[in-house]
Simulated scan of single mutants.
Amino acid sequence: MIIIRPIQASDYDDLHRIAVESGHGFTSLPVNEELLKKRIEHSEKSFNVEVTQPGNEGYLFVMEDTKTGAVVGTSGIEAAVGLEDAFYHYHLGKVVHNSRELGIYNTVETLSLCNDYTGASEICTLFLGEGHRKNNNGRFLSRFRFLFMAEHAERFADTVIAEMRGVSDDDGRSPFWAWLEEHFFSIDFPTADYLTGIGKKVFIAELMPKYPIYVNLLSKEAQLVINKVHEKTVPALRLLEAEGFARRGYVDIFDGGPTVEANRNSIRAAADSQKCQVIIGEVSEQNKFIICNSKVKEFRATQAAVSLRETANQVVISQEAADAILVKEGDWVRIVAN
Protein backbone atom coordinates (compact mmCIF):
# COMPACT_ATOMS: atom_id res chain seq x y z
CA MET A 1 0.00 0.00 0.00
CA ILE A 2 1.17 3.54 -0.70
CA ILE A 3 1.16 5.86 2.32
CA ILE A 4 2.44 9.33 3.15
CA ARG A 5 4.00 10.04 6.53
CA PRO A 6 6.37 12.56 8.16
CA ILE A 7 10.04 12.05 7.34
CA GLN A 8 12.30 10.56 10.02
CA ALA A 9 16.05 10.30 10.56
CA SER A 10 16.22 6.78 9.14
CA ASP A 11 15.03 8.14 5.77
CA TYR A 12 18.29 10.00 5.14
CA ASP A 13 19.67 7.62 2.49
CA ASP A 14 16.40 7.76 0.56
CA LEU A 15 16.27 11.57 0.79
CA HIS A 16 19.84 11.81 -0.48
CA ARG A 17 18.96 9.56 -3.42
CA ILE A 18 15.94 11.74 -4.22
CA ALA A 19 18.11 14.88 -4.04
CA VAL A 20 20.48 13.37 -6.61
CA GLU A 21 17.64 12.17 -8.88
CA SER A 22 15.83 15.51 -8.81
CA GLY A 23 18.68 17.31 -10.61
CA HIS A 24 19.28 20.99 -11.28
CA GLY A 25 16.66 23.52 -10.25
CA PHE A 26 15.44 21.57 -7.21
CA THR A 27 16.77 24.16 -4.78
CA SER A 28 15.03 22.85 -1.67
CA LEU A 29 16.98 19.56 -1.71
CA PRO A 30 20.69 20.29 -2.20
CA VAL A 31 22.98 17.27 -2.46
CA ASN A 32 24.68 18.02 0.84
CA GLU A 33 24.74 15.55 3.73
CA GLU A 34 24.85 18.13 6.53
CA LEU A 35 22.00 20.18 5.13
CA LEU A 36 19.79 17.21 4.29
CA LYS A 37 20.20 15.90 7.84
CA LYS A 38 19.38 19.38 9.19
CA ARG A 39 16.29 19.45 6.98
CA ILE A 40 15.12 16.14 8.45
CA GLU A 41 15.88 17.28 12.01
CA HIS A 42 14.04 20.56 11.48
CA SER A 43 11.03 18.69 10.09
CA GLU A 44 10.93 16.31 13.04
CA LYS A 45 10.97 19.27 15.44
CA SER A 46 8.22 21.01 13.46
CA PHE A 47 5.91 18.01 13.70
CA ASN A 48 6.50 17.75 17.44
CA VAL A 49 6.04 21.41 18.44
CA GLU A 50 2.74 22.89 19.59
CA VAL A 51 1.76 25.73 17.25
CA THR A 52 -0.84 28.51 17.48
CA GLN A 53 0.33 30.50 14.46
CA PRO A 54 2.68 29.82 11.54
CA GLY A 55 6.36 30.34 12.19
CA ASN A 56 9.63 28.85 11.03
CA GLU A 57 8.27 25.30 10.86
CA GLY A 58 9.04 23.13 7.86
CA TYR A 59 7.09 19.91 7.29
CA LEU A 60 8.70 17.27 5.09
CA PHE A 61 6.75 14.15 4.15
CA VAL A 62 7.73 10.98 2.34
CA MET A 63 5.72 8.58 0.23
CA GLU A 64 6.37 4.97 1.21
CA ASP A 65 5.49 1.72 -0.51
CA THR A 66 4.61 -0.43 2.51
CA LYS A 67 5.04 -3.65 0.54
CA THR A 68 8.75 -2.99 0.06
CA GLY A 69 9.39 -0.35 2.71
CA ALA A 70 10.90 1.86 -0.01
CA VAL A 71 10.59 5.64 0.07
CA VAL A 72 9.54 6.61 -3.45
CA GLY A 73 8.80 10.33 -3.18
CA THR A 74 8.80 13.43 -1.05
CA SER A 75 6.65 16.52 -0.55
CA GLY A 76 6.91 19.49 1.80
CA ILE A 77 5.28 22.58 3.26
CA GLU A 78 7.04 25.63 4.70
CA ALA A 79 4.77 27.28 7.29
CA ALA A 80 5.94 30.87 6.74
CA VAL A 81 8.76 31.82 4.37
CA GLY A 82 11.19 34.70 4.76
CA LEU A 83 10.98 35.10 8.54
CA GLU A 84 14.68 34.30 9.05
CA ASP A 85 16.22 34.46 5.56
CA ALA A 86 15.10 37.00 2.98
CA PHE A 87 12.72 35.50 0.41
CA TYR A 88 13.23 37.17 -2.95
CA HIS A 89 11.14 37.38 -6.11
CA TYR A 90 10.98 39.54 -9.17
CA HIS A 91 7.64 41.20 -9.79
CA LEU A 92 6.62 41.89 -13.36
CA GLY A 93 5.43 45.45 -13.78
CA LYS A 94 5.06 48.07 -16.48
CA VAL A 95 6.46 51.52 -17.12
CA VAL A 96 4.93 53.85 -19.70
CA HIS A 97 7.08 56.23 -21.75
CA ASN A 98 5.08 58.68 -23.80
CA SER A 99 5.52 62.02 -25.51
CA ARG A 100 2.44 63.95 -26.62
CA GLU A 101 4.60 66.26 -28.68
CA LEU A 102 6.11 63.41 -30.68
CA GLY A 103 3.06 61.17 -30.56
CA ILE A 104 5.06 58.30 -29.06
CA TYR A 105 3.63 55.91 -26.48
CA ASN A 106 5.67 52.92 -25.34
CA THR A 107 4.87 50.40 -22.60
CA VAL A 108 7.87 48.55 -21.20
CA GLU A 109 7.82 45.54 -18.87
CA THR A 110 10.04 45.70 -15.79
CA LEU A 111 11.35 43.26 -13.19
CA SER A 112 11.50 44.64 -9.64
CA LEU A 113 13.20 42.79 -6.79
CA CYS A 114 10.84 42.33 -3.83
CA ASN A 115 10.02 40.37 -0.66
CA ASP A 116 6.24 40.48 -1.10
CA TYR A 117 5.64 36.87 -0.11
CA THR A 118 7.30 37.10 3.29
CA GLY A 119 5.12 35.20 5.79
CA ALA A 120 3.25 33.15 3.18
CA SER A 121 3.10 29.37 3.41
CA GLU A 122 4.87 27.51 0.62
CA ILE A 123 4.29 24.05 -0.80
CA CYS A 124 7.58 22.69 -2.04
CA THR A 125 10.00 19.77 -2.46
CA LEU A 126 7.66 17.64 -4.56
CA PHE A 127 9.41 14.71 -6.23
CA LEU A 128 8.20 11.24 -7.20
CA GLY A 129 10.40 8.44 -8.50
CA GLU A 130 9.70 7.43 -12.09
CA GLY A 131 8.71 3.89 -11.17
CA HIS A 132 5.75 5.16 -9.13
CA ARG A 133 4.43 7.80 -11.50
CA LYS A 134 1.15 5.92 -11.93
CA ASN A 135 -2.14 5.24 -10.16
CA ASN A 136 -2.59 8.96 -9.40
CA ASN A 137 0.39 8.84 -7.04
CA GLY A 138 1.73 12.19 -8.26
CA ARG A 139 -1.65 13.83 -7.79
CA PHE A 140 -1.92 12.25 -4.34
CA LEU A 141 1.58 13.43 -3.37
CA SER A 142 0.62 17.01 -4.16
CA ARG A 143 -2.99 17.20 -2.97
CA PHE A 144 -2.70 15.52 0.43
CA ARG A 145 -0.87 18.63 1.67
CA PHE A 146 -4.03 20.69 1.34
CA LEU A 147 -5.87 18.25 3.62
CA PHE A 148 -3.08 18.52 6.19
CA MET A 149 -3.30 22.32 5.98
CA ALA A 150 -7.10 22.28 6.29
CA GLU A 151 -6.90 19.98 9.30
CA HIS A 152 -4.23 22.08 11.04
CA ALA A 153 -5.06 25.56 9.76
CA GLU A 154 -3.47 27.31 12.74
CA ARG A 155 -0.06 26.16 11.47
CA PHE A 156 -0.32 27.94 8.12
CA ALA A 157 -0.78 31.37 6.57
CA ASP A 158 -3.83 32.50 4.61
CA THR A 159 -1.74 32.82 1.44
CA VAL A 160 -0.16 29.67 -0.01
CA ILE A 161 2.41 29.83 -2.78
CA ALA A 162 4.33 27.44 -4.99
CA GLU A 163 7.49 28.28 -6.91
CA MET A 164 7.43 26.49 -10.24
CA ARG A 165 10.67 25.31 -11.80
CA GLY A 166 11.70 27.53 -14.69
CA VAL A 167 13.31 26.69 -18.01
CA SER A 168 16.81 25.19 -17.97
CA ASP A 169 18.64 22.66 -20.14
CA ASP A 170 20.01 19.22 -19.24
CA ASP A 171 23.26 20.79 -18.04
CA GLY A 172 21.41 23.14 -15.70
CA ARG A 173 21.90 26.23 -17.85
CA SER A 174 19.12 28.79 -17.44
CA PRO A 175 18.74 31.38 -20.23
CA PHE A 176 17.33 33.83 -17.69
CA TRP A 177 20.22 33.40 -15.29
CA ALA A 178 22.76 33.52 -18.13
CA TRP A 179 21.96 37.20 -18.66
CA LEU A 180 22.15 38.00 -14.93
CA GLU A 181 25.38 36.01 -14.67
CA GLU A 182 26.99 37.95 -17.51
CA HIS A 183 26.09 41.38 -16.16
CA PHE A 184 25.94 41.02 -12.37
CA PHE A 185 26.94 37.72 -10.77
CA SER A 186 29.77 35.94 -12.60
CA ILE A 187 28.70 32.56 -11.21
CA ASP A 188 26.79 29.90 -13.14
CA PHE A 189 23.19 28.84 -12.49
CA PRO A 190 23.93 25.47 -10.76
CA THR A 191 26.29 27.26 -8.35
CA ALA A 192 23.81 30.04 -7.56
CA ASP A 193 21.05 27.45 -7.21
CA TYR A 194 23.17 25.36 -4.85
CA LEU A 195 24.23 28.32 -2.71
CA THR A 196 20.60 29.29 -2.23
CA GLY A 197 19.69 25.70 -1.36
CA ILE A 198 22.30 25.58 1.41
CA GLY A 199 21.10 28.89 2.85
CA LYS A 200 23.89 31.16 1.60
CA LYS A 201 21.73 33.93 0.18
CA VAL A 202 23.75 36.99 1.17
CA PHE A 203 25.23 37.19 -2.33
CA ILE A 204 21.75 37.93 -3.71
CA ALA A 205 21.40 41.13 -1.70
CA GLU A 206 25.01 42.05 -2.40
CA LEU A 207 25.02 41.53 -6.16
CA MET A 208 21.42 41.64 -7.41
CA PRO A 209 20.55 44.89 -9.21
CA LYS A 210 18.62 47.13 -6.81
CA TYR A 211 16.64 49.02 -9.43
CA PRO A 212 13.95 47.66 -11.77
CA ILE A 213 15.30 45.89 -14.85
CA TYR A 214 13.78 46.70 -18.22
CA VAL A 215 12.80 43.35 -19.72
CA ASN A 216 13.54 44.52 -23.26
CA LEU A 217 17.20 44.95 -22.28
CA LEU A 218 17.55 41.25 -21.50
CA SER A 219 18.74 38.81 -24.13
CA LYS A 220 16.02 37.42 -26.42
CA GLU A 221 16.61 33.97 -24.91
CA ALA A 222 16.06 35.32 -21.39
CA GLN A 223 12.93 37.23 -22.38
CA LEU A 224 11.34 34.10 -23.87
CA VAL A 225 11.53 32.07 -20.64
CA ILE A 226 10.21 34.66 -18.17
CA ASN A 227 7.09 33.26 -16.45
CA LYS A 228 7.56 29.91 -18.25
CA VAL A 229 7.93 26.50 -16.61
CA HIS A 230 10.29 23.61 -17.30
CA GLU A 231 8.68 20.99 -19.55
CA LYS A 232 8.75 18.45 -16.71
CA THR A 233 6.91 20.91 -14.45
CA VAL A 234 3.91 21.45 -16.76
CA PRO A 235 1.79 18.64 -15.15
CA ALA A 236 2.46 20.01 -11.65
CA LEU A 237 1.46 23.51 -12.75
CA ARG A 238 -1.76 22.26 -14.33
CA LEU A 239 -2.65 20.37 -11.17
CA LEU A 240 -2.16 23.48 -9.02
CA GLU A 241 -4.14 25.63 -11.43
CA ALA A 242 -6.99 23.12 -11.14
CA GLU A 243 -6.79 23.63 -7.37
CA GLY A 244 -7.26 27.37 -7.80
CA PHE A 245 -3.65 28.58 -7.84
CA ALA A 246 -2.96 31.49 -10.19
CA ARG A 247 -0.06 33.65 -11.33
CA ARG A 248 0.19 37.14 -9.86
CA GLY A 249 3.20 38.38 -11.81
CA TYR A 250 5.94 37.01 -9.52
CA VAL A 251 8.85 35.03 -10.97
CA ASP A 252 11.93 33.31 -9.61
CA ILE A 253 15.09 35.41 -9.47
CA PHE A 254 17.26 32.60 -10.87
CA ASP A 255 15.36 30.92 -13.70
CA GLY A 256 12.37 33.25 -14.22
CA GLY A 257 9.85 30.50 -13.48
CA PRO A 258 6.42 31.61 -12.20
CA THR A 259 5.24 31.58 -8.61
CA VAL A 260 1.55 30.76 -8.20
CA GLU A 261 -0.62 31.54 -5.20
CA ALA A 262 -4.01 30.75 -3.66
CA ASN A 263 -5.96 31.50 -0.51
CA ARG A 264 -5.61 28.49 1.79
CA ASN A 265 -9.34 28.10 2.42
CA SER A 266 -10.18 28.40 -1.29
CA ILE A 267 -7.89 25.60 -2.48
CA ARG A 268 -10.17 23.05 -4.11
CA ALA A 269 -8.93 19.96 -2.24
CA ALA A 270 -9.31 21.73 1.10
CA ALA A 271 -12.68 23.28 0.30
CA ASP A 272 -14.09 19.98 -1.02
CA SER A 273 -12.73 17.83 1.80
CA GLN A 274 -15.02 16.39 4.47
CA LYS A 275 -14.54 15.34 8.08
CA CYS A 276 -16.01 11.88 8.64
CA GLN A 277 -16.15 9.36 11.44
CA VAL A 278 -14.62 5.99 10.65
CA ILE A 279 -16.56 2.76 10.28
CA ILE A 280 -14.44 -0.27 9.43
CA GLY A 281 -16.05 -2.75 7.08
CA GLU A 282 -16.36 -4.07 3.55
CA VAL A 283 -16.10 -1.50 0.77
CA SER A 284 -17.65 -2.33 -2.58
CA GLU A 285 -17.09 0.99 -4.37
CA GLN A 286 -14.01 1.42 -6.53
CA ASN A 287 -13.80 5.22 -6.38
CA LYS A 288 -10.51 6.30 -4.79
CA PHE A 289 -10.33 8.97 -2.10
CA ILE A 290 -7.41 10.58 -0.35
CA ILE A 291 -7.84 9.80 3.35
CA CYS A 292 -5.79 11.24 6.20
CA ASN A 293 -5.97 11.05 9.95
CA SER A 294 -6.22 14.14 12.17
CA LYS A 295 -2.80 13.75 13.82
CA VAL A 296 0.36 15.80 13.39
CA LYS A 297 3.50 13.88 14.34
CA GLU A 298 1.73 10.58 13.59
CA PHE A 299 0.12 11.93 10.42
CA ARG A 300 -0.71 9.35 7.78
CA ALA A 301 -2.47 9.57 4.43
CA THR A 302 -3.33 7.03 1.76
CA GLN A 303 -5.54 6.47 -1.27
CA ALA A 304 -8.33 3.96 -0.85
CA ALA A 305 -11.86 3.11 -1.90
CA VAL A 306 -14.49 4.20 0.62
CA SER A 307 -18.25 4.13 1.14
CA LEU A 308 -19.64 7.49 2.17
CA ARG A 309 -22.60 7.96 4.52
CA GLU A 310 -22.81 11.70 4.05
CA THR A 311 -25.95 12.37 6.08
CA ALA A 312 -24.26 10.87 9.14
CA ASN A 313 -20.77 12.23 8.41
CA GLN A 314 -19.46 8.69 8.34
CA VAL A 315 -17.16 6.82 6.01
CA VAL A 316 -16.64 3.07 5.67
CA ILE A 317 -13.03 2.07 5.04
CA SER A 318 -11.27 -1.28 4.98
CA GLN A 319 -9.22 -2.61 7.87
CA GLU A 320 -6.13 -2.35 5.66
CA ALA A 321 -6.76 1.36 5.05
CA ALA A 322 -7.46 1.95 8.75
CA ASP A 323 -4.20 0.28 9.71
CA ALA A 324 -2.31 2.28 7.09
CA ILE A 325 -3.40 5.63 8.52
CA LEU A 326 -3.35 4.58 12.17
CA VAL A 327 -7.05 4.95 12.93
CA LYS A 328 -9.66 2.78 14.55
CA GLU A 329 -13.45 2.72 14.38
CA GLY A 330 -14.93 5.94 15.74
CA ASP A 331 -11.90 8.09 14.91
CA TRP A 332 -12.24 11.08 12.59
CA VAL A 333 -10.57 11.40 9.23
CA ARG A 334 -10.50 13.98 6.43
CA ILE A 335 -11.26 12.78 2.91
CA VAL A 336 -11.48 14.13 -0.62
CA ALA A 337 -12.02 12.42 -3.97
CA ASN A 338 -8.75 12.14 -5.86
Rank of each mutant, 00 (worst) to 15 (best):
133 R>I: 03
83 L>M: 09
212 P>G: 08
39 R>K: 15
25 G>A: 04
179 W>N: 10
313 N>G: 04
143 R>F: 00
104 I>H: 07
267 I>P: 02
164 M>Q: 10
331 D>W: 04
40 I>W: 06
49 V>Y: 03
297 K>N: 14
294 S>G: 09
263 N>L: 10
257 G>P: 06
247 R>E: 12
22 S>I: 00
212 P>M: 09
77 I>A: 00
20 V>T: 14
53 Q>M: 05
144 F>Q: 02
337 A>T: 12
129 G>H: 03
211 Y>L: 15
103 G>L: 02
317 I>E: 05
214 Y>I: 07
330 G>N: 11
155 R>P: 04
24 H>C: 08
295 K>D: 14
263 N>G: 05
270 A>H: 01
54 P>H: 02
231 E>S: 14
207 L>C: 08
90 Y>N: 09
325 I>W: 05
86 A>P: 00
196 T>V: 13
313 N>I: 06
148 F>K: 04
112 S>R: 11
95 V>H: 06
218 L>H: 06
120 A>F: 12
310 E>T: 15
207 L>N: 10
47 F>I: 07
162 A>E: 01
14 D>R: 11
324 A>F: 01
178 A>L: 09
110 T>S: 06
251 V>F: 03
137 N>G: 02
272 D>T: 07
301 A>H: 07
224 L>Q: 15
283 V>C: 10
130 E>R: 10
127 F>M: 05
210 K>W: 00
103 G>F: 03
92 L>F: 07
202 V>W: 00
289 F>N: 11
18 I>Y: 00
305 A>D: 06
24 H>A: 13
184 F>I: 06
169 D>Y: 12
186 S>K: 13
220 K>M: 07
216 N>A: 03
83 L>S: 01
335 I>K: 05
176 F>P: 06
159 T>G: 00
172 G>R: 05
46 S>F: 08
318 S>G: 12
32 N>G: 01
286 Q>V: 13
195 L>I: 05
203 F>P: 01
105 Y>G: 00
292 C>H: 09
240 L>A: 01
325 I>T: 05
337 A>I: 12
113 L>Y: 06
38 K>A: 14
38 K>D: 12
307 S>Y: 05
3 I>Q: 00
140 F>D: 01
338 N>R: 10
211 Y>W: 11
274 Q>N: 12
311 T>H: 13
42 H>E: 13
284 S>V: 11
336 V>R: 01
87 F>D: 08
92 L>I: 15
331 D>L: 03
84 E>S: 06
249 G>L: 08
303 Q>K: 14
